[in-house]
Simulated scan of single mutants.
Amino acid sequence: MTEGRVTAVSRNPEYAFSKPNQPSVTLLEGLGVEGDVHAGRTIRHQFRMTYEPDLPNLRQVHLMHEELFAELALKGFDVSAGGLGENITTRDVDLLGLPTGTLLHLGQDAVVEVTGLRNPCAKINDFRQGLLGEMFTIDPSSGDFTFKAGVMAVVRHTGTVRPGDAVEVEVPPFPHRPLERV
Rank of each mutant, 00 (worst) to 15 (best):
T160P: 00
P172A: 02
H176N: 03
F136Y: 09
Q108W: 12
L131C: 09
G150N: 08
F127L: 07
R128L: 05
P163M: 08
H62S: 04
A81D: 03
M152P: 01
A73N: 05
A39D: 02
V154D: 00
L27Q: 09
T89R: 08
A70W: 10
L74Q: 13
L74R: 14
V79M: 06
L132S: 12
R162P: 11
L28A: 00
L103F: 10
T89S: 03
D36M: 00
N12Y: 10
F77V: 01
D54N: 00
V167G: 04
K75A: 03
R181D: 06
N57Y: 09
H62M: 02
V9P: 07
P13W: 12
V111M: 08
P56W: 15
V155N: 04
E113H: 13
E180A: 10
E34H: 12
A81R: 07
Q129P: 14
V161Q: 09
S24A: 11
E168R: 14
F136L: 01
V9N: 01
H65G: 13
P99L: 07
V61T: 06
P13L: 04
H157P: 08
G97Y: 11
A153I: 06
V112D: 05
R177E: 03
P53Y: 12
A73G: 02
R91I: 12
V171M: 11
R162D: 07
I124Y: 14
G82D: 04
D94P: 09
V9W: 06
R5N: 08
A73D: 04
R59K: 11
G159L: 01
P178G: 04
Q108P: 08
D36N: 03
H105Q: 09
F17H: 02
L98M: 10
G133M: 12
E170D: 10
K19R: 07
Q22W: 15
M152Q: 02
G82N: 01
E14R: 14
G97V: 06
D92N: 15
G164L: 07
P173C: 09
G143C: 05
T100S: 08
R59M: 05
R48F: 07
K75W: 11
L74M: 13
V9F: 09
G164Y: 14
E3V: 14
T160D: 03
G116P: 02
D36I: 02
G107D: 05
A70G: 04
V182Y: 15
R177F: 08
G159T: 08
A39H: 03
G32N: 01
K19N: 06
A70P: 05
V37Q: 12
Q108K: 11
P163R: 15
V154K: 08
K19M: 09
I138Y: 15
C121E: 07
E29K: 14
N125P: 00
G150E: 15
